[in-house]
Design a protein around this nucleic acid. Structure first.
Length: 299
DNA sequence: TTAATGGTGGCCTCTATGTA
DNA sequence: TACATAGAGGCCACCATTAA
């Protein structure tokens, strides 16, 4: 019973629209998982048991949905090991994942870009100029029916511009990996940890980041001042606002019957609808003035 | 780094029971 | 009646896992 109370305590959906939550909950109930799963026998007993329990819970209809304080939605699907997604179906159809390349650094880049723009606008006002951009003062994730953002990137600090472009081209992790003579996959998790870590802790990754993007790192350190978790929380809020404030509502409006489930910054849907979802995500990113890589990966 | 989950075990409180 | 003990349940921390 105390687990139930703990779950109730953490189920606070204030930061995600109720209709979005209900839509995702309804879609969750449509998911089925195959009865014939080849578990990796080389796994430790604990890992194997955890996978078996996760699968059993899905079969039994244990379909919880929790919104955390930073707007992320957690479900049995988000907790499911990636390799088991291949066994999921909806209406008998296999699923595909529509994934944003280097999403976390990209959302951070959007936040830093907005910061830089607001700072620039503030400086101009102080000099007696009108606001630099009609977007000034408005949250970048407000879902108003405004036109696409016409962003003058030349006004941004050079290394922030380069950081943003690398994120868009899925080259950010590779740039760090190349400096360290490592493989992209090996540095990815460490880069993410370093970005969100305590700013006073230094390692090889933080050294390379400081070398490649000095103003970006300095900006991040300022955001972390007083509470280093703020940067991670901010990135998650931006991700949440984008996914549940823009992408999912648009899909709900345009294709209300289409299956959709989220895995933080990616969207799970049936393979036949994956290209449509990819188009929606690209269009919504375009409204924010960025063109990241969005890939469809069959589960 | 953040979040979630389940499992386990420790600590605390409350209640019931046994004993002097 | 007073005290000791045992069991149950709530709460929490820690560990494992998953995702990004």
């Amino acid at each position: 019973m105390w687990r139930e109370s703990r779950r109730r305590k953490t189920t606070k959906a204030e930061c995600v629209d109720t209709q979005v939550c209900e839509h995702l909950r309804r879609n969750l109930r449509r998911v089925r998982i195959s009865s014939a799963i080849d578990f990796d026998e080389s796994l430790s007993a604990g890992k194997l048991a955890a996978r078996q329990i996760a699968v059993e819970n899905l079969r039994c209809g244990e379909l919880w949905l929790v919104v955390d304080a930073f707007g992320r939605i957690h479900t049995p699907i988000t907790n499911l090991p990636k390799e088991l997604r291949a066994y999921l179906t909806v209406d008998g159809k296999r699923l595909a994942n529509v994934d944003v390349g280097e999403a976390q650094p990209l959302f951070l880049a959007l936040f830093l870009r907005e910061n830089a723009r607001l700072q620039e606008s503030k400086n101009l006002r102080n000099q007696g100029h009108p606001p630099a951009h009609p977007y000034d003062g408005q949250s970048m994730m407000d879902n108003r029916p405004q036109e696409e953002v016409d962003l003058d990137r030349t006004a941004l600090p050079a290394d922030l511009r380069r950081y943003l472009e690398l994120c868009e081209n899925r080259g950010f992790y590779q740039a760090v990996a190349s400096k360290l003579n490592m493989h992209r996959a090996d540095v990815k998790k460490r880069v993410l940890a370093t970005l969100f870590d305590r700013p006073w802790r230094r390692n090889a990754i933080s050294g390379v980041l400081g070398e490649l993007f000095p103003a970006v790192v300095q900006n991040m350190r300022e955001i972390k001042r007083g509470n280093y978790r703020r940067l991670a929380h901010t990135a998650q809020r931006i991700e949440s606002a984008f996914m549940f404030g823009r992408v999912v509502p648009r899909i709900m409006a345009e294709r209300p019957k289409m299956f959709v489930s989220t895995i933080h910054d990616s969207i799970l849907t049936t393979a036949e609808n994956a290209e449509y979802v990819r188009g929606v995500m690209l269009a919504e990113f375009a409204r924010l003035g960025v063109t990241p890589q969005v890939q469809v990966e069959p589960c």
